[in-house]
Design a protein around this nucleic acid. Structure first.
Lengths: 151, 151
DNA sequence: ATTAAACACTACAAGTTTAGTAGAGTTTCA
DNA sequence: TGAAACTCTACTAAACTTGTAGTGTTTAAT
């Protein structure tokens, strides 16, 4: 499960990708996100260069880069940390599993490497811009599972 | 990230799949799992019918079903709960996302549905028996990412 | 210059989860 | 009958999650 915070971050970015420069308050109300919590999230995203802000009387937020350069994976790593299901499979925060004898022969690692790869395959490719597109148009990948309430 | 507890559970099951009937202490020592913690894990797996135990003087544990009928997904759901990245995508524990206006048009849900499906694709297919096989043999899926330390 | 509206930053806190530990009880077999 | 093994419940420290609170700083309009 991704965190509520990450969901809020993605929602906020999708809102900013509309192109306006809304205030925190406007985003919070429109997206039903607790306002002070959203402040912190937007600060995180700002520190990482995804959004920029204008202070003062008619301030607000906007994307600091094109929406088609912001992947879901990038957002998740900022908010939730590594995507990999095992520390020993993380690209961004590698750590050996403390109970693992030998990574090269670890059966668990081998299986989860496949999970990690397929997750990255989606998350590091799909951008905020793509996610905004209505389905039914030409799509990057296969979206046929939209109707199946599964997993 | 899957929990340490789930990793212990998978490790214990892989050990039991060797076919012997080891004691908790033997598994704990061999797999470097805290003994009392492992007791609880094995009890969970027993309640769910994956393993069975013999008490008393020469007791021990063994698999209660063929290793090729125990998928990683089943173990993860027992120990860690739902696999889905969003509550609204869980097959086993569906819950609406509280901040979501409309599931059918939710952009976030649409993207994570793809992640969920590909994760299930691996986890609900790969069994303890398959994981034990040495690589290099004929394999079910594609295992070519074994050498890439990524995600 | 003042002031109101907006962002910036830090601290705190309740609740939950994680990763165990502890200990008393029960069963079996030699 | 006693030692070795599983069974079961309770407890706990630390970390994480999901916020709330409050103070400060900047900007634009007046």
């Amino acid at each position: 499960m991704i965190s509520q915070k990450a969901r809020y971050a993605l929602r906020a970015l999708l809102a900013l990708a509309e192109g306006k420069s809304p205030t925190i308050g406007e985003i919070a109300e429109e997206q039903k996100i607790p306002r002070k919590f959203l402040e912190q999230i937007l600060l995180d995203l700002k520190y990482q260069g995804l959004v920029s802000s204008r202070r003062g009387r008619s301030g607000g937020y906007e994307l600091h880069m094109p929406a088609d350069q912001i992947t879901f994976g990038r957002v998740l790593r900022i908010i939730d940390g590594p995507i990999a299901p095992l520390p020993c499979l993380s690209r961004t925060a590698y750590k050996p599993c403390n109970d693992c004898r030998d990574e090269k022969t670890c059966e668990i690692r081998r299986v989860f490497a496949r999970v990690a790869e397929s997750a990255r395959d989606v998350l590091d490719r799909v951008t905020i811009a793509e996610a905004m597109q209505k389905p039914g148009l030409a799509e990057v990948g296969d979206l046929s599972e939209t109707e199946a309430k599964s997993a």
